[in-house]
Design a protein around this nucleic acid. Structure first.
Lengths: 342, 342
DNA sequence: CTGAAAGCGCTTACAG
DNA sequence: CTGAAAGCGCTTACAG
């Protein structure tokens, strides 16, 4: 039914091997022969059988995206980037969630990873947080000799990764708030244990200290990236006595920032006139909010794209071990100059 | 390195074929032999090479999820369902977006589909809207003899599908609004040309007419599923003279419903005291909104799960051509009894 | 520049 | 109940 390499060879009057050479762009084929084979392959709508090729080369032309309980928005963009990179190179992306919600031991994680990968022969693996920081998983991959690129890992170490500078982004955002005249800047931290939580907080601290201010412990509260936690912590911050109350709140992600806006408006505080708010992530929510949210846009799509590309590229042409991509501060309407009387 | 079927056969002192029988749960193996082979396979951590098996059977154990410009939320849930079904059966899901944004001709669509599938040998395809209603694509699939299950198609026809009754859901939601005393119920339609747009509108009309009311043309406006269009149309509805203004608005999806709430509050109308609002989809947004949105929950995960399952099941055991799954009306806080004086 | 042979790791008839 | 042979459609050495 479907044309095979033999059909093409017969029709072109050459051997299978020559067809194979043409298809894989190998040298040592006469231009004329090459052209003829190409024409006939196109005419027959020939495309190689991936299974046969995979069996012969022990490559699969498959890349796996492996993740655990991520934000839908985050994973979708990583995925889209990875798919685009795969498609350009004739690869395909297989998506494999690894549900490790319950605090599992290192060995259990390793086993879960192993059982996924043993059934599926992939040429490389993209690992998102928090999986990319699990030792058990990394070791399993090493044992199985499967290449892997980590996305936004906490510990950059010696293995390939793509990431961005959360620290610097948070620093710049805080600087911006300071530049708008704010001095009492509240900060809502993210889920404890996530790499991004610490990095973002560090950037905030650096900025505060860089202008000679002291960190005010009561202005720093602990959320967990959820809208609900953001609402809870916003109430704590906004119920501080007026002279201690923050005039701006920097939430570690957009969901929590949305909660801050919502709580503020329930308390009769106008954003940004009475309270400036900013977030982190630039999810679709950020533009829908009113006022539209000032936030940090992460290069999520590009991280996925570059991760897949690193996996696909022949070893020789690989760039450095790690790639740090640019973020962008999205200035919108939720931050204003501090009013004189505040 | 990795154990093969020959390794297992040798160590068990049987032929390759016997190992193959055990692994594929075929009959005609002595229980004792079967047990021994299983034990040794486990000990050697043997798992079959998918490429080799694929070459021999001309099956790939791969299912493709193909979509075009969908809502991230929708696709993620379909995908998660499909992956879970695949995993249970030893299959894997390959994700292949097909970008057909520009109004392409039927042949161009068919070609795009063909070039994706010729490179990738899959055992079946899951098609989401609007692709599942493209004749060109359906025909290509038929020519390639690739099984396909459509998700929520407009035309149910004779090919396998999974779906739900958008019509009935909209009917019930409108009935609920009527039951709360509302008579002037605004309706914001979705993107023209989407199957869901018409079905949801039909349900609304049926409900209105079922209680002996007439459709009021000025209460029906055209959105396109985007937040922005929802805001625009909400303004039109809410700027109607008070005696004509709707006391409830049913938006065809949650994003537009969110816009209605936002516009209402900007105009000083309290939801639900002055205006009841409901949506369709039950996206994560619905719970975050204040007030939390009354909406229709679609069985999206289950549609993905069942679609994959239909593809994987041996032909004999297939259920009916189509599966219609249950939806759920999620009553939350955005709808209230009509106040007496309105 | 070109090709014949062997082999990748499975399964499908077929034989016993 | 069990097995030896052939073959799926490619590519990898190797020869010429």
């Amino acid at each position: 039914m479907k044309a095979t390499i033999t059909d093409v060879a017969k029709k072109a009057g050459v051997s299978m091997k020559t067809v194979s050479r043409v298809l894989n762009n190998e040298p040592n084929v006469a231009d004329k022969t090459r052209a003829r084979v190409k024409a006939i392959a196109a005419e027959l709508r020939y495309s190689p059988n991936l299974a046969a090729r995979g069996l012969a080369t022990s490559k699969s032309y498959l890349i796996a995206l492996i993740y655990d309980n991520p934000s839908i928005n985050y994973i979708s963009h990583i995925q889209r980037g990875a798919i685009d990179a795969c498609r350009e190179a004739g690869y395909h992306l297989v998506v494999e969630p690894l549900y490790l919600e319950k605090a599992k031991s290192r060995d259990e994680k390793a086993d879960a990873m192993r059982s996924v990968l043993e059934r599926l022969p992939v040429d490389g693996v993209i690992l998102t947080p928090p999986l990319c920081d699990s030792e058990g998983i990394l070791q399993t991959l090493a044992e199985l000799r499967i290449d892997c690129v980590r996305v936004a890992p906490a510990n950059r170490g010696q293995q390939p990764f793509v990431g961005m500078d959360d620290d610097t982004a948070a620093y710049q955002m805080t600087q911006y708030l300071l530049g708008q005249g704010h001095q009492r800047i509240g900060f809502i931290k993210g889920h404890i244990g996530h790499a991004a939580t610490d990095m973002r907080f560090d950037g905030y601290c650096r900025a505060i200290e860089s202008v000679g201010l002291n960190l005010t412990p009561e202005l720093v509260v602990n959320g967990d990236f959820s809208f609900e936690s953001g609402a809870e912590q916003a109430k704590i911050l906004l119920n501080l006595p007026v002279e201690k109350r923050p005039t701006a709140i920097f939430a570690s992600n957009d969901d929590m920032a949305a909660a801050v806006i919502s709580v503020a408006s329930q308390m009769g505080l106008a954003v940004p006139a009475d309270l400036s708010v900013c977030g982190f992530d630039d999810t679709p929510l950020a533009r829908i909010l009113s006022p539209a949210l000032t936030t940090v846009r992460q290069p999520i799509y590009k991280m996925g794209y570059n991760a897949a590309q690193q996996l696909i590229m022949p070893a020789g042409s690989k760039a450095e071990i790690g790639q740090i991509l640019d973020f962008e501060i999205k200035l919108r309407d939720s931050v204003a100059l501090l009013k004189k009387n505040m």
